[in-house]
Design a protein around this nucleic acid. Structure first.
Length: 852
DNA sequence: CTCGTGCATGGGT
DNA sequence: GACCCATGCACGA
């Protein structure tokens, strides 16, 4: 988000006229969504919450807080978010409001709009304070700016908005806000404290602390860390936590901190009675979607909720079951089962009228929208697709959008994938691909599972809902999980050390690992090779033009690498420069690569698969380390640690990948870290070569053995670290897809990894994790991204370490073996096995540690 | 018989 | 054990 008045050199404060410094400081958010740029002095005053007191003393609009009597300049944008309107009249400063209201419902249906008369019933059990606070949040912010950056965002609305805000807010550095914004240890401490307060439910204190400055979110830029800090608990607890970092824009910060906390604290604190939506209903709107909805109007869009269509929703009955909390929070209150007709506008502006009603159900209600069939059909929606509900302000119009299942996860993954959002097919816009988008946020270490919820999960959902209607419920939280499989070389290949930390070397199962106190940086995978002259090189593909560039083997690459980063070969530092590598050479680089695919890829650089593969790649990069983090038990500390590792573990799995962060080291850099990394890569390459030759030998041997595989042989086979050593049978080899629930023993593996690192290993927790645990499920779903990633690697010339090759016929020795040569982060989930490609099963059947 | 409606059921949380 | 909600299902048109 740009700042206002950037063209002007003087302070935005009309009463000041001072020149801004070169780096003007941000003040309040303007109606345009930009910030007022202030000179240092005014900014300080503003940040201290004394702006109006200083400059607007004589202005109109001052009122007293009904509770503490403090004067608040209600007639000013600067202070518009430091007070709330009280029902009986009067105002209350946020500080007092916060003291009184922390856990509140969200009568998001604007009182000033329709259905006004119905509200009291709904709100009858809310405290007056609660209501007053939230009511106050209505009119004030809506006028503030034609954007979503409103200051007083009711809890759920905040949830809704944050992703959007993150999407479009201040450009570059979103990805690790806490790192970016919380530079001082003190702030870090604050952050931790706040997290803790959220964790243990003492949110009120935490929120208050932040509100104490009472200055309208003034400290937001500085206190982002607090916002951000709230992510980990939620991630831990709720796998479907939206994948955004809470880079709450300036004006929202103060008022929303607590609310964010409420949101994030939800799973831990009793959500019932809090009127909190289940995370699966949290709207995950993209900027693009919101723009779709809003069109050219200046309306403020309030994302309300979204719902994945169940089979019955999308069926012919024409009833869309509404989540109760959503219905009660955002739709008009109804007291009769007949309900009332509800006008809903779709993204194209077409109006639909649904019957919003409920059925009595077990002393409760079940809300439905009836008559949605035409709409569903018009949108060509089916089970698994997502319908979104938002509200246009100030009209109060309900807007129904949708996200096709095929794009829902790409939207979530939110890379440059062709999307169909609200019926408009479009390439992901720059913002989505931009570092500022969620995806980057994810890389900070906070990934929501949905990020990678590949198509397969949706498909599986749909399938399960159609084929096994009575079985598992469609839960994105459980199923949009992705199994990460990659060779440990790949995992290593994805890692770059933190520039600021020298590693300690740890030997695990014979392999040397460098452990960092701090996170390594995920780098772009590349193909290591030896040039004609025997020089060690690596091939890396530009993410813009997809051409392959030759780099020194020890070159450290950021996760996103483009030709412009090619400082080693200036002649090829532009995408326009020709590729050095011929298709044949590429093919040679990756023997298993499908040349046709390679050619196709090169020919059609916008090819969807390719894009998706990139997505998968980056996603994988995230998940390589973070994958299982979401399934962490609440007891584990924070974020991205591998669940089988204890807090404090500094192994590569437990380290966060602030991808691309930190100063770039030149190739000639001789700092400790670089030297270490170079050494590490040398070691890696040697290892790879060795492995490669071993594999080839093994392959040959296996081909012969495959005629009559025996458990013993499999067990002895070092290259089959994931094979189910304890329970292998020819059947498992032959029918790799035939892994059913009725074979619980197959989950057992006496020695899941030989010659490989089982990143799952966490002896203390081994018995706690069942095959059906979330982590396993997640890992299954990780499949998609991983597959895409590998597909990309292979189809585009591939990586020497990219052993799995999807396009390869399954069942043959090399394929199976290569796939076995995987590090699988996660447990086996038998249910999910059904839909996996045949080539993928062998590894997983053995990847699960013994579960007793 | 099909279809729509209203409620019941039961798996999942 | 309460609640949510996807789906089943009886019943009537």
């Amino acid at each position: 988000m740009s700042s206002a008045s950037s063209s002007s050199k003087v302070c935005y404060n009309l009463d000041c006229k001072e020149l801004k410094s070169e780096r003007p400081r941000k003040g309040w958010r303007l109606r345009t969504g930009e910030y007022a740029e202030l000179c240092d002095r005014c900014a300080s005053i503003y940040e201290e919450g004394r702006f109006c007191e200083t400059f607007h003393v004589t202005a109109n609009g001052w009122r007293c807080c009904e509770t503490c009597g403090k004067q608040v300049h209600c007639g000013c944008i600067v202070s518009s978010h430091v007070f709330t309107l009280l029902d009986p009249g009067g105002i209350e400063c946020m500080k007092c409001a916060r003291k009184n209201v922390l856990w509140t419902s969200n009568p998001a249906w604007p009182t000033s709009l329709c259905f006004n008369s119905l509200l009291p019933e709904r709100l009858k059990d809310l405290s007056v304070k609660s209501w007053s606070h939230l009511a106050g949040s209505g009119p004030v912010p809506w006028r503030q700016a034609p954007s979503l950056f409103n200051s007083s965002i009711p809890p759920q609305e905040l949830q809704s908005r944050v992703p959007y805000e993150v999407d479009i807010s201040s450009g570059t550095n979103k990805l690790n806000g806490s790192e970016r914004l919380s530079s001082s240890p003190l702030e870090k401490k604050k952050t931790d404290d706040f997290s803790e307060s959220l964790m243990n439910g003492s949110l009120k204190l935490g929120a208050r602390e932040i509100l104490e400055n009472g200055n309208a979110g003034i400290k937001c830029e500085e206190s982002h860390s607090s916002c951000l800090s709230q992510q980990p608990p939620s991630i831990k607890e709720d796998p479907s936590t939206p994948k955004f970092s809470l880079t709450v824009p300036h004006a929202s910060s103060n008022e929303t901190n607590g609310q964010i906390g409420v949101r994030n604290g939800r799973p831990r604190v009793d959500a019932r009675g809090r009127n909190h939506l289940l995370s699966r209903y949290w709207p995950r709107f993209t900027h693009q979607e919101l723009q779709q909805i809003s069109g050219d109007s200046n309306s403020v869009i309030t994302p309300l909720f979204e719902k994945m269509l169940s089979a019955s929703d999308a069926g012919r009955i024409g009833r869309l079951v509404l989540p109760k909390k959503c219905a009660e929070a955002y739709f008009p209150s109804i007291s009769q089962p007949e309900g009332l007709p509800l006008k809903v506008q779709d993204a194209k502006g077409k109006e639909w009228i649904f019957q919003f009603r409920f059925w009595p159900n077990n002393n409760s209600r079940m809300y439905v929208l009836e008559g949605v069939t035409p709409c569903i059909q018009a949108m060509q929606l089916q089970a698994g697709d997502i319908v979104t509900f938002s509200r246009l302000e100030p009209e109060g119009k309900l807007v129904m959008g949708f996200r096709k299942a095929s794009t829902a996860q790409s939207s979530d993954q939110d890379n440059e994938t062709v999307k169909t959002v609200n019926g408009v097919s479009t390439h992901g816009d720059a913002e989505l691909a931009d570092p500022s988008s969620w995806y980057k946020v994810d890389k900070s270490g906070y990934i929501a599972k949905e990020v990678i919820g590949g198509k397969s999960s949706i498909t599986r959902k749909r399938k399960s809902s159609t084929l096994r209607p009575k079985s598992k419920r469609l839960r994105i939280e459980n199923e949009d999980l992705i199994e990460l499989k990659l060779t440990w070389e790949e995992a290593q290949g994805l890692l770059r050390p933190s520039p600021n930390h020298a590693p300690s070397i740890v030997v695990i199962e014979g392999f040397e690992f460098e452990e960092y106190e701090d996170a390594p940086i995920l780098g772009k995978p590349s193909i290591f090779a030896t040039s004609n002259v025997g020089e060690k090189i690596q091939w890396v593909q530009c993410e813009d033009c997809f051409k392959w560039r030759k780099l020194p083997a020890n070159a450290l690459l950021p996760s996103r690498w483009t030709c412009t980063d090619n400082s080693w070969d200036p002649e090829r530092s532009l995408c326009s420069a020709a590729q050095e590598l011929t298709a044949e050479q590429l093919e040679d680089l990756l023997p298993h690569c499908n040349l046709a695919a390679t050619k196709k890829l090169k020919a059609t650089k916008q090819d969807l698969d390719n894009v998706e593969a990139l997505e998968g790649l980056d996603t994988l990069a995230n998940l390589a380390i973070l994958g299982e983090g979401e399934s962490l038990p609440a007891s584990s500390q924070a974020t991205t640690k591998h669940p089988r590792h204890r807090p404090g573990c500094s192994c590569i799995v437990c380290i966060q990948p602030p991808s691309g962060k930190g100063p770039k080291h030149k190739q000639t850099c001789t700092c400790n870290v670089c030297l270490t990394v170079k050494r590490r890569f040398r070691t890696l390459m040697l290892r790879r070569e060795k492995k490669q030759s071993e594999k080839e030998a093994e392959t040959t041997r296996k081909k012969q053995q495959q005629q009559l595989p025996s458990p013993e042989k499999l067990q002895d086979d070092d290259s089959l670290p994931c094979s189910n050593t304890g329970n292998n049978s020819p059947k498992h080899i032959r029918e790799v897809n035939d892994v059913s629930d009725d074979e619980p023993n197959r989950m057992k593996s006496s020695s899941p990894f030989k010659g490989q690192i089982d990143l799952n290993i966490q002896p203390e927790r081994e018995e706690e994790l069942s095959p059906g645990s979330d982590s396993g499920s997640m890992m299954k779903s990780l499949q998609d991204a991983t597959d895409r990633y590998r597909q990309k690697l292979s189809s585009s010339g591939g990586s020497g370490n990219s052993s799995g090759n999807q396009s390869q016929p399954s069942g043959d020795g090399p394929g199976g073996e290569k796939l076995n040569n995987l590090v699988t982060l996660g447990n086996h989930h038998s249910d999910a096995e059904e839909d996996l490609p045949a080539t993928l099963s062998l590894k997983s059947s053995g990847s699960t540690p013994a579960t007793g």
